[in-house]
């Protein structure tokens, strides 16, 4: 155990490169998840049975399939079907589309959580439809949606490790930690520092969610 700190300093470049790659994966997947999730959440809340149905099929498929199986389908399956994606694109696409199903569900419940009375009251006060949506409904919906979206971000940070550990072999914190450990055969010490890296990310996200929650959320 004496070499615990030596292992961090000697491999600092590799650790930090992996850490930054994990951040990049999370950042890009988050953008995909938010964009697709908002769209699907909109379909789920739209006043059309057919659109609801499409949204529901998306959500049920991507929420119930294991992320690793999705990666096999998109990376291995599509490549031999003729569509070859880079590991980074395939990985962020899978993680993004997977998380989008959960984003859609929380956005839908956020929109429905704003009572119909709010809408009616705003209209009767002379707000136009657009103003009602922009000034009354959306601000409230966004606030109720923040804690679940924060949860999803934390879950996504954890799920990003699957991209490095799978056949994609993206050099994230997990894979770089594994490579360092293979070189020095100090598994416990090396994994300790990789764990610290992940806890920094999930811990920071947890604190950020708590702060936002305190400042913005309306209790229902």
């Amino acid at each position: 155990m004496g070499d615990l700190f030596a292992i961090l300093t000697r491999n600092f470049d590799s650790f930090s490169a992996g850490f930054l790659t994990t951040c990049r994966l999370v950042f890009v997947s988050f953008a995909i998840a938010m964009a697709v999730g908002t769209l699907i959440g909109g379909l789920r809340a739209a006043p059309s049975k057919a659109l609801n149905r499409i949204g529901a099929i998306y959500v049920e498929f991507f929420r119930n399939i294991p992320l690793l199986v999705l990666i096999y389908i998109v990376y291995d399956g599509l490549a031999r079907g003729g569509l070859r994606l880079s590991a980074f694109v395939a990985g962020t696409l899978c993680l993004g589309l997977y998380t989008a199903a959960y984003v859609a569900e929380s956005i839908r419940s956020g929109v429905f959580a704003v009572g119909k009375g709010q809408f009616d009251a705003a209209l009767s006060l002379g707000f136009t439809q657009g103003e009602t949506l922009r000034k009354i409904v959306l601000p409230q919906a966004i606030r109720t949606v923040i804690p679940p979206l924060g949860n999803l971000t934390i879950a996504m940070i954890k799920n990003s490790a699957i991209l490095g550990g799978s056949l994609l072999a993206i050099n994230d914190l997990l894979l770089n930690g594994r490579l360092i450990a293979n070189n020095n055969a100090r598994y416990v010490q090396t994994f300790f520092w990789a764990a610290v890296g992940y806890l920094i990310l999930t811990g920071a996200a947890t604190i950020a969610v708590r702060v936002l929650e305190k400042r913005l959320v309306i209790k229902r």
Partner: peptide, 11 residues
């Protein structure tokens, strides 16, 4: 906090 499947409670 931090569990993906706990957010899906229908409103």
């Amino acid at each position: 906090t931090g569990i993906e499947d706990q957010v899906a409670a229908p409103a």
